[in-house]
Amino acid sequence: MPHVDLPAIIQAYNDAVFDTDKDQAFQIVDAALAQGLCPEDVVFKVVIPAVEDMMSRITQDPDANLAQHFMTAQIAAEVTEKMLPLFRAPPERIGRAVIGTASGDLHSLGKRIVMGCLKSLMVDVTDLGVNVPAERFVDEAVRLDARVIAISAMMVHTATGEQGSLRVRQLLRERGLEERIRIVVGGAPYRYDPELYRQVGADAWAPDGVSAGKVIADLVRGRPPTP
């Protein structure tokens, strides 16, 4: 078996992701497979650590930017989807989350970034779309046995509105589901007011889509979130 230089692969892949160069990232993955790296290691030793590396870079690097968030999630999701059919055995899934934008909100970018990260983190995620009524969030979470309802809101009135997270919290309380299902929120208003998530009844929030993936994965596992 040819020599696999895992540290060099990880470094090259991370650099490609940081440069938002999807083609380069896929070339590195293909070359790694050709060298003999197994698909499982591509996902668990290269892709997932790269998502985590990006989370720390985002908070430390002054040049971290939205394009990187987007491409980190895109590349991670696409590589993971490409690798999964090649696994020797289906990977263990952590659990399920449902995600959508709050009632009245049509901004879908944040949701997509989060979904990309969740796929690579082995969380099953169901996309409920945009402008999702609170009742549908809860109904679908129950139907799919999801542990987390993730609500993205890019505007103040959709983040704080009575038909958004506040209503989801009320429904969970009325139906006795608060211990079983957690609420995670994200979007611009929460970045400007980091205490806002408490006021809308959420259990946790994240400042960006990549970090949100980790927060949601932690809650799906039943752990306290570590953004």
């Binding site: 009245g104 909100d105 402008n131 009135h157 959709t158 509105g161």
Partner: peptide, 12 residues
Amino acid sequence: ILFNDTGTPNVA
């Protein structure tokens, strides 16, 4: 346009 009497209109 999606109007909402408590906030900013969105392109729909």
